[in-house]
């Protein structure tokens, strides 16, 4: 067989061996029992947003054929609006605040509906900062809530490397020394330095949508985040 013939044969064999067909990523082709609903909610103290991604064995899918997502926040039911994130469809609702737990519904025209998925939201809180003058450490305080989710404190600014503390126990306080912010030999800054302190509480859950196997899954991550400005005055 000539070289050209061999090449044609190999190309044909590769094509026949299954070059992989790109699936049409729409919800109509996906069973609700195969879906993975990924819910993220964030209230940063200024505004709030809820985002939902609909995952499946063929990737993140677009809701089609009359399928739709709804959230009920504070007793008000709202349809989620389709958008794009990194080229994948995402469904969102913009809110002023996340006052507490909310409900998620997935309504489908030709498949099982999912109603009343409870997304647990940490309670709103405020954070206060003191110190960071002369040789005083940075003292942070907030209302503790042991059931309120995982607490993470983050401090960032031009004069420091970003520092992040994940708390094993929510005691409502955290003290960060100046040496932790700028370890020796750098030491404290020579001039006042603006820092941003962020405190977040996050509740994550993972549950099955149905008791069947497979039964689909819903993962939720709801975060209350508060950010305050602090000036490190040496």
């Amino acid at each position: 067989m000539s070289r050209a013939g061999t090449n044609v044969f190999l190309l044909l064999a590769l094509a026949l061996a299954g070059c992989g067909l790109d699936p049409d990523r729409v919800s109509e082709l996906v069973s609700t029992r195969d879906m993975l609903l990924g819910v993220t909610a964030l209230d940063d103290g200024v505004a709030a947003a809820i985002d939902v991604r609909v995952g499946s064995p063929i990737g993140t899918v677009e809701l089609t054929g009359g399928d739709a997502l709804f959230v009920t926040v504070g007793g008000t039911r709202r349809p989620m609006i389709e958008g794009q994130n990194n080229g994948a469809p995402i469904y969102s609702v913009e809110l002023d605040t996340l006052p507490g737990d909310f409900l998620l519904d997935l309504e489908r025209q030709n498949d099982r509906d999912v109603h009343g998925v409870v997304v647990e939201v940490p309670p709103p809180f405020t954070v206060a900062a003191e110190g960071l003058t002369q040789d005083l450490p940075l003292s942070l305080a907030w209302a503790p809530d042991p059931e309120g989710g995982k607490v993470v404190i983050s401090v960032q600014g031009d004069c420091i490397d970003t520092l992040t503390r994940s708390l094993d126990e929510d005691t409502g306080t955290l003290v960060i020394t100046q040496a932790e912010l700028r370890p020796p030999p750098a030491g404290p800054p020579l001039a006042p330095c603006a820092l941003e302190v962020s405190a977040s509480r996050t509740i994550t859950t993972r549950d099955a949508l149905f008791s069947t196997n497979p039964g689909g899954n819903v993962t939720t991550s709801a975060e209350q985040r508060r950010t305050i400005a602090v000036v490190w005055t040496p």
């Binding site: 299954g18 067909l21 790109d22 996906v30 029992r33 063929i58």
Partner: peptide, 17 residues
């Protein structure tokens, strides 16, 4: 070439020989 079932009822295209 056709569609195969994946999971409980998801339609996924496939091909072969």
């Amino acid at each position: 070439q056709g569609d195969q079932r994946v999971g409980a009822g998801t339609l996924v295209p496939y091909n072969g020989w």
